[in-house]
């Protein structure tokens, strides 16, 4: 039986927090729990298409350790969650507009279900557990 849906609002652009969101989302999704992630604010630029990890990720001391060890890449973890479990991802429409970006053209390929507004996401999240990162 599927568990309570998990909703993750990812707003931080710090590598450590993106990594945590990716871990929660992927493990939750493969553990019979529907998961939805809303990527907004400073987090969205980390999901740009065709950039190197050095440009994608910024953070503190732990970020440096992530970059030099075999910690799974956050984008790959999100992708694993989508491939192996029930994970949906939404890009914040406001941040897309401000950067003049489009999901299909400017964000990591195959990672997002589309653009979405906060109101719709929060309304959906009333039916589950909301985590803000």
């Amino acid at each position: 039986m599927a568990g309570l849906p998990l909703y993750i609002l990812l707003a931080s652009g710090e590598h450590e927090k993106i990594q945590l969101a990716a871990m929660i989302a992927s493990v939750g999704a493969v553990s019979d729990r529907p998961v939805e992630v809303f990527v907004s604010m400073d987090a969205l630029p980390a999901f740009r298409r065709d950039i190197e990890p050095a440009e994608r990720y910024h953070g503190g001391p732990l970020h440096e350790t992530f970059m030099t060890s075999k910690v799974p890449d956050a984008m790959e973890l999100f992708s694993n969650g989508r491939m192996l479990g029930d994970l949906k991802m939404w890009a914040c429409a406001l941040i897309l507009d401000l950067h003049h970006w489009e999901v299909e053209k400017d964000l990591v390929e195959g990672l997002f279900d589309g653009p979405a507004g906060l109101t719709v996401f929060l309304a959906s999240a009333e039916g589950g557990q909301l985590i803000t990162i």
Partner: peptide
């Protein structure tokens, strides 16, 4: 070996699917 959490779990799940 050498992979950190949740890498080994993800590899297992991918193998279980097949």
């Amino acid at each position: 070996r050498g992979a950190f959490c949740p890498g080994p779990l993800m590899e297992l799940i991918a193998a279980l699917k097949l």
